[in-house]
Amino acid sequence: MNNFYLKIGLVCVALLAGAWPAAALDGVVIIVNKSVAADRINDAALKDIYTGRTTYWADGQSVKLTVLDNQITDKTDAASEEVSGMDASHFKTFWQRMVFSGRGQMPKEIGDTAALVAYVASTKGAIAIVLADADLKGVKTLKVK
């Protein structure tokens, strides 16, 4: 019995210490519209954007979250899952709940990488995850701290 409580206690300590494993954002980059003042972003701030807790940049312009429709690449899919903490299905459902309860705006879905980069380049406040080897003309990349 004591071992049981000891294990529960260790799990709780591990959770509170933030010791749950996290993978790296391999093979992808975070891009934003050039209107975004930031040059870097930390994991927590990125997660807050993908989970709707941050909806405005520091200067007050709206965050326009942009995603690839239908998870075109495994890498961007995995990165989105890692950043948001939700798989593609949960991510979609989460944002549907936000939209239809009046608490958020649906991420813009774009069909291919080139179109997504073009949308981010032309839309103030836009942010997206794309493959690192994509043509990133017209957008700014954020370093993830």
């Binding site: 405005y56 007050g60 312009q61 709206s62 939209v99 239809f100 009046g102």
Partner: peptide, 18 residues
């Protein structure tokens, strides 16, 4: 059936209706 609209008219401001 539901139909909603939302927009950001000013910085940090959002208006939505359904």
């Amino acid at each position: 059936a539901g139909l909603n609209a939302s927009f950001n008219p000013f910085p940090r401001t959002r208006i939505a209706a359904q």
